[in-house]
């Protein structure tokens, strides 16, 4: 997993609520059996004027000039700031994969859907929840100033604006530890393999019916 320590980057605004994972990466791109290649189809239905299909040459597809990420000023953006309940809907991890592979390192919103929020951390992609008014201000300032960049410092748990305003955010110590070090959970969890084995044995003794394997 990619480490996340400090990141300074250009901000792009997505000024709407309930951005769902079907919008982030439409279902036709979920047919891939790989983890990569989703960035070019991020927000596909909003970003391009024609309907996208896997295997298309995306470079030749007509772009929707009204879509925010197609505007010249937001090229190279690595931090997305959006409305509440970002990432709602389907559990597809392809959503954080697509955001990350497009070039985003973090997304800031007043709130996130639980599964998206969780999936993001597993990939070194940082979802940051700030207050409604802080997010409103970030969106307005991003729209107002070309080249608007903020700095995210995970260790300090802060987002710092060009004006020097510092906004603090929460993260659990476990997630912070994993992100700062680029550790994936599996290796960490397997340190407890003996405990898992013991728990499993006790459970099987007490509730053997959860381990039935009858199958025709």
């Amino acid at each position: 997993m990619d480490k996340f320590v400090v990141h300074k980057g250009l901000v792009a605004p997505m000024d709407r609520e309930n951005v769902d994972t079907d919008a982030i990466i439409p279902k036709q791109f979920l047919k891939s059996i790989h983890r990569t290649g989703f960035g070019v189809n991020l927000f596909d239905a909003w970003r391009y004027k024609n309907e996208g299909q896997p295997g298309m040459d995306n470079a030749t597809r007509p772009l929707n000039p009204d879509f925010v990420l197609n505007q010249a000023r937001y090229q190279g953006a690595s931090i997305l700031v959006a409305g509440k309940n970002f990432g709602c809907g389907s559990s597809r991890e392809h959503a954080p994969w697509a955001l990350q592979q497009y070039g985003f390192r973090a997304v800031i919103a007043p709130s996130f859907a639980d599964i998206f929020f969780n999936n993001s951390y597993k990939n070194g992609f940082l979802p940051i929840a700030l207050t409604d008014s802080q997010v409103r201000r970030l969106i307005d300032e991003t729209k107002g100033f070309v080249g608007y960049e903020v700095t995210i410092d995970l260790n300090a748990q802060t987002v710092t604006t060009p004006g020097g305003e510092v906004m603090a955010f929460d993260i659990t110590p476990h997630r912070k530890f994993c992100l700062l070090n680029g550790f994936d959970d599996i290796g960490l969890s397997l340190r407890h393999a003996e405990k898992i084995t013991a728990f499993e044995a006790a459970r099987k003794a007490r509730h053997p019916y959860y381990f039935n394997t009858r199958i025709a």
Binding site: I115, N118, N119, K122
Partner: peptide, 8 residues
């Protein structure tokens, strides 16, 4: 759960 969790 997401795919990373499926693997987990």
């Amino acid at each position: 759960i997401g795919t990373s969790e499926v693997e987990h």
